[in-house]
Design a binder for these strands. Structure first.
Lengths: 213, 213
DNA sequence: CCGGCTGAACGCACCCGTACAATTCGGCGT
DNA sequence: ACGCCGAATTGTACGGGTGCGTTCAGCCGG
């Protein structure tokens, strides 16, 4: 597959499909519009991807893999936690929120929520096969920080779950489910609040005096 | 359940509309099926509600108002916080999650996420006009608990935001966006975890020894 | 007798997936 | 560097299906 004989129109088609799907939803989007957005004729779309359903699935997987890669990279950035723990966590939170509050990520989650009943397999693709890959990766890092005495968490998985919840929950509301894009200072504020309460709960010794403004 | 006045048919139509919409999504649902589900002829539907769009809006508002009322009642139950603060917060968390993880609430949020770009006004209706009414009501109660010396929160709004995030975030993941219904013990576990870290961060004095399992 | 309800059908529009002939583009031998 | 071949692409049109919103005659209860 992937006929290399010609320019990779498949990529253009998948990108166009995702943008159109994110504008109008799955069933409201028509293949004609996707073809137009990709600058391609409709039969070409069916030449590369068999059906609208497959088109949707592949467009979602492509977008999901990109978003997951960026998120994992942000978490991996915590590996070399420099001197200051709070600063490192705040930076991690900001990076995660920059991925999370992205226009494309909002569209991805909206489409996932909308079609999760019709396409249940999308869950494994978007969240990362099995349970949530982000939480697992973050749990690994929190466990390391606990072993080195920087944190005091008894259940790394639960702590990771809650760290992510403290980040995404407030953003969901403040951003009005993605209809209002947040500025970087707003994201930094949310990340700071999240790290503050996370450290109040899980810091090893404590610098509890330095709460948020 | 047969005709007992016109007002009953309107309720039946709205209920049927919400169940069908939650099964198939907005654009995949056809008015015929809604009419059949309500035990009503299609012209009757258009006699009560002008268009499919209006039908969707009214069905969503009805479901949203019901869910919001139950949530606010749960928060109001915190007004007379008995002797034990942790027990009261855990009970509140469980009640909120019983509302949140309900099948109907999942359907409501899925439809909201799916159609928020096409029907932006649904946001004010579902979240409660203006900003989040739940967070505001909970912030009021947290402020009271701070004044009476049971908690130590500097920003009640942010604390309420985070308490709700600690509840709903883990449930979103564990429930796989509502495709897997959680049992009450599971919800109790999530609520216990949320209250534990919340108290670790915001308890006035502290009973920090009693963390989760 | 009257107003709401019913069942069925209709016009209109939309869209998926495919067929077909004409056309363009990339690769290759020389 | 050049020109040809075959494959990929294009535009258009069609068949099948579906659904919205409406119309209309008949029905039932008060």
């Amino acid at each position: 597959m992937t006929t290399r004989g010609r320019i990779d129109k498949r990529h253009a088609i998948l990108n166009a499909a995702f943008t159109v799907f994110s504008r109008k939803g799955y069933s409201q989007s028509c293949v004609n519009e996707i073809a137009a957005e990709a600058g391609v004729a409709k039969p070409t779309v069916y030449n590369h991807l068999d059906s609208k359903e497959n088109l949707f699935r592949h467009a979602m997987t492509a977008a999901a893999e990109g978003a997951m890669a960026r998120n994992l990279a942000a978490i991996e950035g915590l590996r070399d936690a420099g001197g200051e723990l709070r600063g490192a966590l705040e930076e991690l939170g900001l990076q995660l929120l920059l991925c999370y509050a992205n226009e494309q990520s909002w569209a991805l989650r909206r489409l996932l929520y909308a079609e999760v009943t019709q396409f249940p397999d999308l869950l494994d693709i978007v969240l990362g096969n099995g349970t949530n890959r982000l939480a697992e990766a973050l749990a690994d890092r929190l466990a390391r920080l606990t072993l080195t005495g920087r944190l005091r968490v008894t259940d790394p998985a639960a702590a990771a779950e809650q760290f992510l919840a403290l980040l995404t929950g407030p953003v969901d509301i403040r951003s009005r489910l993605g209809t209002r894009l947040l500025t970087e200072p707003e994201l930094r504020d949310v990340a700071g609040n999240a790290v503050s309460t996370f450290l109040l709960a899980f810091a090893a010794e404590d610098a509890r005096a330095t709460a948020a403004t």
